[in-house]
Design a protein around this nucleic acid. Structure first.
Length: 420
RNA sequence: CGGGGUGUAGUGUAACGGCUAACAUUCCUGUUUUGGGAACAGGCGACUCCGGGUUCGAAUCCCGGCGCCCCGACCA
């Protein structure tokens, strides 16, 4: 993509109404635009990152048997009354509105009811199970206080998978697979080294739920990490008995602030019972379906990456979720320089390498460099009088101080190699 | 929902109760420039969040509302 066609511009100044690092950098670099507190629009660069994250999650979910679908944002009163979660006294984050005919509807703040209600139509026999439907969708919560930029919003985009299993052991088997899939996801997204599977309160059907917590001062949770074992305990269940039951030692645990980037938990029959979601087993006996829930907030995940991986010049995107792989900068207005850059741009595109081409005329070198650092694309390639005189193009990783001159062929090789 | 802070061109800031609300940046015109947010010249852009009040006079003081940020509570 040519940067001259990208309508967003970077800002030199931080927004006055944002304190959090993720919002500051994402707004300055032109990834998101603030609509109101806790509500952000995703601009072209930001959407590309979200889509990258989405694809990583999709791959992992499909890999463990997930089936993608899409539940509606609109939810009917009747369905939610079954689980006793329609009442504003019970759930205070509802956004509700009315249809022209007076019927009440709410905007999804979670998906258990929607899935339970839909699956009831299709699940009759043990042969119909297990199933693992999931979706990516926007979720709405009327938070009394949204905060921390895109880490806690009133509208957010998430992935939610629900498991429908015949019994506990089948459920547990999938649950373990989901744990591994989640680890893979956070590893691929580039924050695996800071993300810990964390034991948290589990509700009435299991002792614990499992949160995936990424260590950062921007987080709102307190967790106790055992760095060697790679697991942690959420403050909400932190006590001597729990520490012991998990085989941990108090003296090994380190207190950290962290942000919950994902969570999985066992629902048991909490929803299958009120929805009468049953199947007939091999003996013709009716049994309740055992459910589990598996969520990840993609915006929060994107914000967490920014919190954790930026420097004083801007964002440092991991290659896996960067909006583009290469930022190609042309300096100078001589025809041969421009042509050379244009050629390289076309070559990279032909090879399937995602490139943002800063073809903007009349901008100083310093401004292009500053923009490039702020936007944070992993590889920067400069075409200039100097680079051509030195025999090619200057390539530098976002994380490196100095670039080196390489030929076009070598450059393409390197980029293709890292493309996997 | 309690507490604190704050609201002025697109953005970031300034302005004692008193001149036409200033500066920087963005943007537009032109000249010059091109390896770390270039230089010069000119120009556009503001019902100072909204509503009331005090005053000869309010961006500035007072009251109410709303927005935004932070702390806390809440968080399937």
């Amino acid at each position: 993509m040519k940067q001259s066609k990208l309508f967003t511009k970077t800002k030199k100044e931080s927004p006055a109404d944002e304190v959090s690092l993720n919002a500051e950098l994402l707004i300055r670099a032109g990834f998101i635009s603030k609509e109101m507190a806790g509500v952000y629009s995703y601009l072209p660069l930001g959407l590309r990152v979200v889509k990258k994250i989405e694809n990583i999650i999709r791959e992992e979910m499909d890999n463990i048997g997930g089936t993608e679908m899409r539940t509606s944002v609109f939810q009917t009163k009747e369905v939610w009354e079954k689980s006793n979660r329609w009442d504003d006294e019970v759930v205070d984050v509802w956004f509700k509105t009315k249809l022209k005919n007076g019927g009440e509807i709410g905007l999804s703040f979670t998906n258990e009811e929607a899935y339970s209600d839909i699956l009831k139509q299709y699940i009759n026999s043990y042969k119909d199970l297990p199933v693992y439907p999931y979706d990516f969708k926007s979720i709405f919560r009327n938070e009394t206080r949204s905060k921390s930029g895109i880490l806690r919003g009133r509208e957010f985009y998430w992935k939610a998978l629900y498991s429908f299993s015949r019994d506990e052991s089948e459920h547990n088997e999938f649950y373990e697979k989901a744990k591994q899939a989640y680890k893979n996801i956070f590893q691929k997204v580039g924050i695996g080294h800071l993300t810990y599977m964390t034991f948290a309160s589990g509700g009435s059907f299991s002792k614990f739920s499992h949160e995936f917590q990424t260590i950062t001062g921007a987080g709102e949770d307190l967790i106790y990490v055992d760095p060697n074992k790679g697991i942690a305990i959420n403050k909400e269940v932190y006590n001597d008995e729990v520490i012991e039951s998990l085989g941990l030692k108090k003296e090994d645990l380190v207190e950290n602030k962290a942000v919950e980037v994902g969570n999985i938990f066992s629902l048991g029959t909490k929803f299958s019972a009120p929805f009468d979601l049953k199947y007939k087993d091999e003996n013709g006996e009716e049994k309740l379906v055992i459910m589990g829930s598996y969520g990840i907030g993609l915006g929060r995940l994107m914000g967490t990456v920014v919190e954790v991986l930026s420097d004083d010049k801007g964002i440092i995107w991991p290659e896996s979720i960067a909006p583009f792989k290469v930022h190609l900068l042309v300096l100078g207005s001589d025809e041969n320089i421009k042509n050379s850059a244009e050629d390289l741009y076309n070559n990279l595109k032909e090879k399937g390498i995602e490139v943002l081409f800063d073809d903007r005329a009349d901008l100083s070198a310093g401004e292009k460099f500053a923009d490039s650092d702020l936007i944070g694309i992993p590889y920067r390639v400069v075409v200039s009088k100097r680079s051509l005189a030195d025999g090619g193009f200057e390539m530098k990783k976002r994380t490196e101080q100095n670039g080196k001159i390489i030929t076009k062929e070598k450059l393409i090789d390197v980029l293709l190699e890292t493309n996997r």
